[in-house]
Design a protein around this nucleic acid. Sequence first.
DNA 1: CCTTGAACCTGCGGGC
DNA 2: TGCCCGCAGGTTCAAG
Length: 272
Amino acid sequence: MPELPEVETVRAGLEKTIKNAVIEKVTVRRRDLRQPIPADFAARVTGRPVMALRRRAKYVIMELDGPDGVLVHLGMSGKLIVMDAEPTPTAHDHVIFRLSGGKWLVFNDPRRFGIMLLVARTEVEKHPLLSHLGPEPLAREFSTAYLARGLARRKGPVKPAIMDQALVVGVGNIYASEALFLAGIDPRTPAYAAAERAGKLVRAIRHVLRAAIASGGSTLRDYVRSSGDAGYFQHEFKVYDREKEVCFQCGGQIQALRQAGRATYFCAHCQG
DNA sequence: CCTTGAACCTGCGGGC
DNA sequence: TGCCCGCAGGTTCAAG
């Protein structure tokens, strides 16, 4: 469910509402997520202030006072919601934080593909879950030359390649299709053949991610911001989830296909 | 290495 | 109405 823009929106919302709050009490209602929440999680987090909220790839890191940070991944269906009153626990509310200032933070994840772990703050980048990650798409490191090199050694189609978090992080199934449309690149193009248009693709990826962040992300089914509000970038989709609809650019028909098990949307006329 | 497909799990919508 | 199938903003693992 969440790609970089959604995770960044959640991070920013948490920063605004719970930064500097002290974690007064933690209730772990269910710990069997993609990786189990450690047995001592609540004890180690209780009593500590939230000093900063960071994001790396699709992970949120709540940095605590002291050596640790809470590493959170939302998987496909995870939510982090801040409330002003004690929540009545509902199905799939796995962790509930009571914070100073009368705030509550709820981690809800129906499919349980998410993660909530404690990691040493200085070791975050070295953690096995994060150590293989490529550059942030909005950072300088993600340059035309870098992407061209990365694409050049791949034989498969360009769309799954840009979704590979080892090449570049944060691009998921929605924004991969959208970025390729903006760059005018057919998603079936072999990655090595798209390498010559890497500059265009870098700009398209950055542009679509920035625009989506500005809109608070995309709400299709269940993604919501930490305030509980929906995002609205879904109204800006050019191709995603628009099979058989009219291409806004050429009037042709948007097509769908399946690549590496994921739905891909594109306009065959605009994307050569 | 790179690629693909299956697996993880729950809920929802469509077709019959 | 109810059931079965397929599908969903992700990641990891095995196997080719």
